[in-house]
């Protein structure tokens, strides 16, 4: 089974975000960059499907500047076979979800795949839109928030479980299709030492957006970025014992905060 995994390198979840002097983006200095956590579930699922079918190829496709190669190598070290790195800093700087999906679609359209995996969202801009646009551009069905995947033996279709509000839905979809990975789909593996050594020699096809013949202007523009207002520590509820404190807290929620 052949799969493509769309992957974005993002700041680690423990990163404290600071806004740059121009107010248009974040300070990237000192940030620890990692593979998008939801993309990681996508890579893992692609590897598990390949192992199950004992055949096929896993290709990682990523749009990002030079630094993105580190996350690509992580995916290769986990076991992916090849990668396409759309390395175009100027395009990446102002790329919105539409522009990103357009570049990914151009890179993917000539690859062989039964499933395209994406993370359900990148945890930096949190848009969650690229998979839908990619589906529209490639003419493929998209199922979001996937927590379970069963591919038919002949790879013609799959039965997919997706998270919906308050429960889940089971959906049949013909392949190829785009599936977005949600936490719960699997437990991503760590790259092994031999895996890391091998990854250094695996092919990474570096392309610019011009190579791909894409010329897309963004459809959404960030005008300004800011930090949320700082929250101040409030008051510590005092009391003789825990029961007294509970009583005082209930009173505060009732009388001061007016929430009960």
């Amino acid at each position: 089974m052949n799969t493509v995994v769309c992957m974005k390198q993002v700041p680690d979840t423990e990163t404290l975000i600071k806004i740059n002097a121009e107010g248009t983006g974040i300070v990237t200095e000192g940030v620890k960059w990692v593979m998008g956590p939801y993309d990681e579930y996508g890579v893992e699922e692609a590897l598990q499907q390949k192992e199950k079918f004992k055949a096929g190829k896993v290709t990682i496709v990523s749009l990002g500047p030079d630094r993105a190669i580190e996350a690509i190598r992580t995916g290769l070290a986990m076991g992916a076979d090849t990668a396409v790195h759309i390395n175009d800093a100027a395009f990446y700087e102002k790329a919105d979800p539409y522009a990103t999906a357009s570049a990914l679609a151009a890179a993917i359209k000539d690859l062989e795949y039964d499933v395209i995996f994406c993370g359900k969202q990148a945890i930096d801009d949190d848009s969650g839109q690229v998979p839908a646009i990619l589906g529209e551009l490639l003419g493929l069905p998209v199922i979001t928030q996937v927590i379970k995947l069963e591919v038919a033996d002949d790879k013609s279709k799959a039965t997919v479980t997706r998270e919906v509000e308050g429960g889940h839905a089971i959906i049949d979809v013909p392949l190829p299709a785009i599936l977005t990975a949600q936490k719960g789909l699997n437990e991503p593996r760590y790259a092994s030492l031999p895996g890391i050594m091998k990854a250094k020699k695996k092919p990474v096809d570096v392309k610019t957006v011009a190579d791909l013949g894409v010329s897309v202007e963004p459809m959404t523009v960030i005008k300004e970025m800011s930090l949320p207002p700082a929250r101040q520590a409030g008051k510590i509820i005092e009391g003789e014992d825990a029961a007294e404190k509970a009583k005082a807290l209930a009173k505060a929620l009732h009388e001061e905060a007016k929430l009960i």
Partner: peptide
């Protein structure tokens, strides 16, 4: 606690059950 409007420094197992009772009363 640096983000909380109201903080209770105590064992949650001793705070939550009486809190539930107090909320019921209110």
């Amino acid at each position: 606690f640096t983000k909380a409007d109201f903080g209770v420094v105590d064992d949650l197992f001793k705070v939550v059950p009486p809190l539930t009772e107090e909320v019921k009363k209110i």
